[in-house]
Structures are given as C-alpha cells and as structure tokens.
Computed example of a mutant assay.
Amino acid sequence: MSELTFDEVRVRYGSGRSALTAVDGVSLTVPSGQVVGLVGESGSGKSTLARTAVGLAPLSGGRVLLDGEDVGRRTRRGRRPLQMVFQDPYSSLDPRMSIGASIGEAMPRGSRDRRTEVARLLELVGLDPDRAATRPGLLSGGQRQRVALARALAGRPEVVIADEITSALDVSVQGAVLNLLRGVQRRLDLSMLFISHNLAVVRYVSDLVAVMYLGRIVEAGPTEQVLADPQHPYTRDLVAAAPSWHTSLLEDTVSEVADVEPSDPHRPPAGCRYHPRCPRGPLVHAERTLCVTTDPADGAAGRAHRAACHFAAPSSPVDPISHLP
C-alpha cells in the first residue's frame, strides 16, 4: 500500500492567447489502501491529471508524490509503481501479441516463471488461464478490459489508476467489470484513483470522491457524505442528473437556470469558474457579485467538503477529510 499525492499540480499546453491550462493547481491525495473517485464532465482535466502521475502529461508546476517521494524518481530506478488502465480496451492492447505475451511484457525485469504468473493473473481477473495464447481480436470488450487490468497488475504496482474503464463497454458488462475491480482492489489492498463522469459508478466503487471542474477540484470528501449533501452547485447539478438516487434531496432545492454553455477552458471566468452556470450565483441572484470578483478556492479549507463555493456551509469541527491536502 502507498499514498499518492498531487501537490499543486499544473499542466499547461501551448503559449500566449491560445494556451490552455488543463489542470490548475490541483492538490489531491489517494490514501493508502483506499479508492478515490475523480468525477467531472468531459474537458474538466480528470484524465490529464491522471496522466501526470504516469508520466504521459508534462508537469508545468507542482509535484506528484508517492509516499512523499517524487514519482519520477521512483520510476527511474527501474520500477513503475503506478500503473494505468485506459478507457478503450480495443486500443490499449497490441493486436499482434497474445494476451499472455502482453501481460508477461509488463512484468518487472528478472521475474521468474512468467507463464505461471500469467496464469495466476488471468485467473485473478476471471479469465481462463488456457486462453493465454489468444489474441485480443478474439475477445469481447469486457474480456479485453480484464486483460488490461491483469497487465496493469503484472507490473506489481503500488497504485492503480483506472481511467473511465467502463465507459466504452456495454451496460450489461459494466457491472461485472466494476465488481471485478472492487474485488481485486480489496483482495490486493491497492490504492486506486478511479476516474469517471458517472457519479453512480463512482459511488459504487469509491471511498472518497473529488469533483473536478475546469481544471480545479471544487469539492472533495467521503463519497456518501458528498453525494448525500453536496456543497458545491456543480456537484449538486451532477447529482441531480442522476435521478435514480438522492432525487428527494434535490427536487425542491435545484433552481431553474437558463441553459448556459460551459465556459471556454482557454479563458476561464474570473472569480468562481462556475458562476456563469450557477443557480446560487449572479445568474439568479444579481447581488452576489462576490462570485464574479473573488476566487472561492482561497477559503475552501474552512468549508464543508472543502467546497470552492462562497455560499457552502462551514466545515464541522472535526473535518472528515482533514488528511487530504
């Protein structure tokens, strides 16, 4: 078990007026042995943040730490303590290699009896070890995603990052893959960052949840607490979009707001980044100019769930996420 920490991470692409800050000063901790769900709409920066951890996106600022040590330094020693399972099971595996060879390729140098280890990993993810010679083209999407998970586990990671791993699968298969993921995480006591745009999926898998909007974390805390009593209006909108649960919580409190397009990520608005779409802000309450002039992230530590909203409730005396940065 290891603790993964994003410390004021920034990722910026391009320069000048066309520059895009995809991740803007994000601090987030994945505690040892727990699952943190990272949720937000497309373009919020979730996958970019994950890619910084495995070296696929360049850091413009901040640090990514594993048990307090720079992840890049750990990787240069010949090990890859973080492994990532990608969204598309059809492009994440080499179609020219057997699944057994793909899994074996990911094992650390010097590993002995690779065939036995491949068989063990296939069995761990619910596949017949006799299929090790099979090529990915003969497998279904769900089976390929199981192989991708086995390949990630072959590297003996301390932290696994799962990036939208069910979004490309049929609905009938998603539940089985999620059950597998949760079972493997508990059995191996892994730390995990689980990325999704689906709050229902995040709720099922995660111990903690962080909500991301336009490159920033706007709310974070224990999953059940955040989803039962969301403090940031964006989180409330996400919860309201999943009416199969918590409907009674929101049905009398969500204000009618004009259908407003998301802000341009190249030029995020001043103050609160959500204010052009927010039912608590000046779009509905004209007197709340504070939302336009002052960044609510500055006082987030004193609010419930560290919500980046000027009108969120104050935090309780015992902050349930005080260990998060």
Rank of each mutant, 00 (worst) to 15 (best):
residue 126 G to L: 09
residue 178 L to M: 09
residue 276 P to F: 00
residue 123 E to F: 09
residue 179 N to G: 03
residue 63 R to K: 15
residue 195 I to G: 00
residue 303 R to A: 04
residue 244 S to M: 04
residue 12 R to G: 03
residue 270 A to T: 15
residue 25 G to I: 13
residue 113 D to I: 05
residue 124 L to H: 04
residue 247 T to I: 13
residue 93 L to R: 06
residue 124 L to S: 08
residue 24 D to K: 01
residue 271 G to A: 10
residue 104 G to Y: 07
residue 135 R to K: 12
residue 264 D to G: 11
residue 45 G to Y: 01
residue 266 H to N: 11
residue 167 S to A: 15
residue 252 D to K: 03
residue 89 P to C: 00
residue 106 A to Q: 00
residue 12 R to L: 10
residue 206 S to N: 05
residue 180 L to P: 13
residue 176 A to L: 10
residue 268 P to V: 11
residue 299 G to W: 10
residue 64 V to G: 07
residue 7 D to Y: 00
residue 96 R to N: 14
residue 284 V to I: 06
residue 311 F to I: 04
residue 164 E to A: 14
residue 219 E to H: 12
residue 161 I to H: 08
residue 149 L to K: 10
residue 165 I to G: 00
residue 54 V to M: 02
residue 75 T to G: 12
residue 294 T to P: 01
residue 81 P to V: 08
residue 34 Q to I: 12
residue 238 L to K: 02
residue 81 P to F: 13
residue 83 Q to Y: 03
residue 49 L to E: 14
residue 112 R to P: 01
residue 173 V to W: 12
residue 230 P to H: 06
residue 5 T to L: 09
residue 76 R to C: 12
residue 227 L to Q: 03
residue 16 G to K: 06
residue 54 V to G: 00
residue 255 S to W: 14
residue 163 D to G: 13
residue 256 E to H: 14
residue 191 S to I: 12
residue 105 E to S: 04
residue 113 D to C: 08
residue 261 E to G: 11
residue 119 A to Y: 03
residue 155 G to F: 10
residue 231 Q to P: 00
residue 14 G to L: 07
residue 164 E to F: 15
residue 237 D to N: 07
residue 52 T to N: 13
residue 291 C to G: 11
residue 213 Y to N: 08
residue 291 C to K: 15
residue 245 W to V: 04
residue 75 T to Q: 14
residue 286 A to W: 02
residue 202 V to E: 05
residue 205 V to C: 11
residue 56 L to S: 09
residue 8 E to G: 14
residue 134 T to P: 00
residue 172 S to L: 04
residue 225 Q to T: 00
residue 163 D to K: 09
residue 281 G to S: 09
residue 324 L to G: 10
residue 297 A to I: 14
residue 110 G to F: 09
residue 182 R to H: 15
residue 160 V to I: 10
residue 199 L to S: 08
residue 262 P to K: 12
residue 232 H to Q: 06
residue 43 G to R: 01
residue 122 L to K: 13
residue 250 L to D: 02
residue 4 L to V: 03
residue 219 E to L: 12
residue 129 P to D: 09
residue 60 S to D: 09
residue 43 G to W: 02
residue 34 Q to M: 15
residue 238 L to Q: 02
residue 125 V to S: 08
residue 26 V to M: 10
residue 149 L to A: 10
residue 146 R to G: 05
residue 263 S to R: 04
residue 262 P to D: 09
residue 309 C to L: 07
residue 40 G to F: 02
residue 228 A to Y: 01
residue 273 R to V: 10
residue 308 A to R: 15
residue 228 A to R: 14
residue 192 M to C: 08
residue 220 A to N: 04
residue 221 G to S: 05
residue 125 V to Q: 09
residue 55 G to K: 03
residue 75 T to N: 12
residue 316 S to H: 10
